[in-house]
Design a protein around this nucleic acid. Structure first.
Lengths: 322, 322
DNA sequence: GAAAAGTATAGATAATTATCTATGTAAACC
DNA sequence: GGTTTACATAGATAATTATCTATACTTTTC
């Protein structure tokens, strides 16, 4: 027996004949002519190398070989029914996997979207990577992920971006800091304090640097720290002041005060970025649709900046309905 | 996805590509050209309706759909490997089923062959029917069984017969019967006793009737009984004498004596009969070969009459070796 | 015995599959 | 930058599959 001479169609016809108990009835059910079915059975018998039926007074009776083939056929056809079900889930983005990479600060906000999405689509396997700006850009170059989350990204080849959230940078100091008691603070006042900063490659640092450059001023006393969390704790401990994403601050932050510095907050936005030269899995498309529809549920209104329409329009065939 | 556009060949090629990790390596392994494999993958992707691979720096990476297809392909191809194994067993007669019918007396001898055969081939399912001559003939007419065991069968259309064992009919009486003390008995002496008989339709009865007719004598005092066993017990209890198959007698029968009647024993043989117009299952062919080879093991030499060569020659394609 | 029902075979055709050669494109290697 | 390796696409061909119509044969039913 050479499996290459078997076709799924032959198996379908065979199973139908067995179930109907006659060639003619099977032909009717399959909307074929009786000779077609007769010939298909003959071909199948030749492919297997043994008779499949015996002539008996009671009609068609399967041989032992026929019995084994019936079982195998049902198993195989059933297995592909299962696969087709899986396929449906995959195509509707209800199942599958995708990879998303966030710059450090975005880790404070994305779980608020990824969490509910994962609950709504438990069969979607999301891999989350976190890195600084340079690391994220390197991954983009290497096509390593399906979605990238940046604020203020550079102009990247093959990148399609869409904003979904405001990411304002604010100045903070300890709650009992002298500047915290003022109702209005000049930029020079802020810069006379020691600034706690991220490393030069970070998005926050980059944004601050370019903003200060626009204002024609420069920083005087700085202290570089390894993470936003360390900076926040350092400010609370009066090591200095800082300019950080508002998202880094807990909802209640009694030990900290946002300083009303002239010109702040610095406006920036979280953006989803995909590669136009790379396939975006259905599950990732499902996630983007979910974000688009649920931003208002999970994010405070003043942060919402839903510009995902354009990005989603680049995937016109995505099946919104199952 | 339409399963009719999938072929086992496409699945084989796909599984090989995944395992080799590259299109070119798979092509080499399959002794195909690289474009062939590339095209096959494209066809498969179109049949499924989704991409199966993503381009990555590390070479081919399966999509989620590709992963599911790989799994389904392995399951399906493996299922048919199992079927091919089963098929092999079926074709060599190591597995399967057949039906055999015996006339009443043959039940004393066939278990001595069927028993060892069933042990040697535990996956062969044997259905044994027992009936009198008329019942066995009716089943033959209805094509109900694969093998028929007779002694002295009539000329049957489509029947192919082969002797395998002597079935001599002997005269018996109780051990203390006056005739049992004589060294020589005439037929007339025997017939002056009451004869215990089977019903007219039985093989033994038929054989006896025709033999007596040939001798130009006829029975006088008879008593009809329902089974060979009842006759044997009746003879031991001095109800009369009988002419029975020697096989009905236990190995040791101290309460009975075989009478040295002129002209006895009446010679007859057990025969296997198959229908030439009906498929004989491989498993039944395996049984006949087994009997042919092992008669001397399980049956006393003086009963052996192995003429199965001719019958077996009618199945020239039966695979003796696996 | 005639009619109806069921199965098998012959011949034909369109569609599909499996595979090749030729060529192009992209990426990796030296 | 040139060469090698790997994958994709175009075009072509032979083989195979799927199905039909026509017909023959067998069995069942009335």
């Amino acid at each position: 027996m050479n499996i290459r001479h078997l076709t799924f169609r032959l198996l379908q016809v065979y199973v139908t004949v067995v179930r109907c108990g006659s060639v003619s009835a099977a032909a009717r059910q399959l909307h074929l002519t009786q000779p077609t079915v007769s010939q298909q059975l003959k071909r199948l018998s030749e492919a297997v190398g043994s008779p499949l039926f015996e002539q008996h007074a009671q009609g068609l009776t399967m041989t032992a070989t026929g019995q084994a083939l019936y079982q195998a056929s049902r198993d195989v056809l059933g297995r592909f029914d299962d696969f087709a079900d899986q396929l449906s889930d995959l195509q509707y983005g209800r199942k599958g996997r995708f990879s998303i990479v966030l710059v450090n600060t975005a880790q404070y906000v994305l779980p608020r979207l990824l969490g509910p999405f994962s609950q709504a689509f438990p069969d979607v396997d999301v891999t989350v990577h976190i890195g600084n700006r340079r690391q994220v850009l390197a991954r983009f170059d290497r096509h390593e992920d399906d979605l990238y989350v940046f604020s203020h990204p550079p102009a990247l080849a093959h990148a399609v971006a869409a904003r979904f959230m405001r990411n304002p940078l604010v100045a903070i100091a300890a709650a009992d800091h002298p500047l915290a008691q003022q109702s209005s603070i000049s930029l020079e006042q802020l810069l006379s304090e020691r600034l706690l900063l991220r490393e030069p490659g970070s998005a926050t640092r980059m944004l601050l640097d370019s903003w200060l450059q626009e204002q024609g001023v420069s920083m005087q006393k700085t202290l570089q720290m390894a993470s936003n969390e360390a900076i926040r704790v350092g400010v609370a401990a009066r090591m200095g002041v800082a300019v950080l994403s508002e998202h880094v601050l807990p909802k209640e932050h009694p030990e900290l005060a946002v300083l009303p510095v002239a010109g702040l907050p610095i406006e920036s936005h979280w953006q989803f970025i995909v590669r136009s030269d790379q396939r975006l899995p259905q599950s990732a498309q499902r996630f983007l649709h979910y974000v688009h529809e649920h931003l208002g549920h999970w994010i405070e209104p003043h942060f919402v900046c839903n510009e995902l329409d354009g990005l989603l329009a680049t995937y016109p065939t995505f099946p919104l309905r199952s």
